[in-house]
Amino acid sequence: MSLYYVQKLLYKLNRDPTLKQRFDSDQDAVLDEYSLSEEEIKALKRPDIGLLYVLGVNGQLLMHYATMSGYSWPEYIQAMRDGVEYYGPVREGIYAMIDGNGAT
């Protein structure tokens, strides 16, 4: 699992307009620069916000990626709920720390 690098990419995308431009024009090249699993790459490319939540991405980073990807606030919240229903409990990260459910 490389949750750290998923989160690092989202952190940098939110802060670095040049990286964002590169990501928009050649997503694969940017993703290649990070140590990511197949599942993480799939979740980032689709994007599958629900799966990213289940993989453990901190909401304070995920919400910016969702907004960047065109999600409205209610769509973002719903995507996380759908993710937990489809993929199961949060697997890692801050929301898995206690009960693994994160979403209740």
Partner: peptide, 11 residues
């Protein structure tokens, strides 16, 4: 400092 569930399904 008060309770909240920011950016999660429980927001």
């Amino acid at each position: 400092g008060t309770s909240h569930w920011p950016c999660t399904p429980d927001s």
